[in-house]
Amino acid sequence: MVVMTNHPVTNFPDTNLPDTNRPATNRPLPSVTVLGLGSMGQALAGAFLDAGHRTTIWNRSDGKGDGLVARGAVRAATPAEAVRASDVVVVCVVDYDAAQAVLDRAAGDLPGRLLVNLTSDTPERARAAAAWAERTGVDYLDGAVMVPVPVIGTPDALIFYSGTRSAYEKYGTTLEALGGRSAYVGEDHGLAAVYDLSILDFFWTAMHGLVHGMALAGKEGVRAADLVPYLKANVDLLASVVDGTAADVDESRYPGEMDNLAMEAEGIEHIVRAAEHRGLDTSALRGVLTAARRAIDLGHGADTWSSTVEGIRNPV
């Protein structure tokens, strides 16, 4: 889950399923319950209210949700009462252990409803939660929120969903209240977490590189702001190679006619040496160099950077 308040909205691809279930105007909208009223949970409940859904809320501790109640939400005294109130139950708490503790208190009231878990975790935890939901007799979608709180409920908000396809098709329009770029990624309940972790793997590694590069320049008296136009151009360059890199990785072919890994590794070595000379931490940068050297040892010195995936997949 992304919670950075200064995270820029990305133009993610539109991967929604075709909307074939938009309710007729004379039919009531599905009712929704939100369990957990942290900053994200409150934003989710607010988005449902804004879309016209009858919304019930519950939080483990008192003192949260007064603003939602003032806008029309109904506060439940227990998780079971909250679940009984709605067709769709959304849980968004700190982790899966907390989510399970809440859901265990309402397990007998969940059958016949859709449970949507927007508590980010690993694919393994998502699949375990899905197995519990199946034993409980409830349709289950696992989800991952990919935008910060202020973006929830806007056309730019991306949320991944995976799990029971028929449930997503039935309630997809309801879930669109949370974000205009809701994306269903497959029946495997772990897939939303796979997409979440993979994209954030890239994001946080890139954020580290951004800050590290600014720190390196700063050691020579260059302001981070002075790098901005050149960094943005570099981001554009990176965007231009995403499609080709994906094809290389999927097809396990790494043509290095235009550049090669051995040359690129030497360039990274120069950056590491310069950074260490200036007293900077280089643990992550040395990890990048290690990945390049490992691929070279596997025989990919004449291939392109994409070949480092071979050593990442098999690090021993």
Results as ranks from 00 to 15, higher is better:
137 G>V: 04
60 R>Y: 04
287 G>R: 13
140 Y>G: 07
297 D>E: 15
82 A>N: 10
187 E>M: 09
116 V>S: 04
313 R>P: 01
123 P>H: 00
197 L>I: 13
156 D>A: 11
289 L>H: 03
232 K>L: 13
114 L>T: 11
240 S>R: 09
156 D>K: 12
63 G>K: 15
59 N>V: 13
8 P>Q: 05
193 A>P: 03
159 I>M: 10
70 A>G: 14
88 V>Q: 03
203 F>R: 13
226 D>K: 03
48 F>D: 04
142 D>G: 07
312 I>V: 15
93 V>I: 13
285 L>G: 02
111 P>L: 11
73 A>H: 09
192 A>P: 08
311 G>M: 02
247 A>V: 14
177 A>S: 13
154 T>E: 03
190 G>C: 03
177 A>R: 00
155 P>G: 07
99 A>C: 06
124 E>W: 06
269 E>C: 01
44 L>M: 15
109 D>R: 00
49 L>Y: 10
173 T>Q: 14
177 A>P: 07
124 E>K: 06
279 G>P: 02
57 I>K: 05
179 G>N: 09
85 A>K: 13
249 V>K: 00
167 A>C: 09
250 D>V: 11
105 R>I: 00
270 H>K: 06
115 L>H: 06
264 E>Q: 15
87 D>C: 05
72 G>R: 14
28 P>W: 13
156 D>Y: 03
247 A>R: 13
71 R>H: 15
260 N>P: 08
122 T>G: 02
154 T>D: 03
132 W>K: 04
284 A>T: 14
13 P>F: 15
240 S>L: 02
120 S>H: 08
149 V>F: 10
104 D>R: 08
69 V>I: 08
75 R>K: 14
254 Y>R: 02
129 A>D: 02
236 D>M: 10
291 A>P: 02
57 I>F: 04
59 N>M: 05
284 A>K: 05
151 V>M: 01
126 A>M: 07
200 L>M: 15
153 G>C: 02
98 A>L: 08
197 L>D: 10
300 H>T: 09
258 M>F: 13
311 G>R: 03
142 D>V: 04
160 F>K: 02
120 S>C: 00
27 R>S: 10
144 A>G: 05
27 R>Y: 10
129 A>C: 04
86 S>P: 09
118 L>T: 12
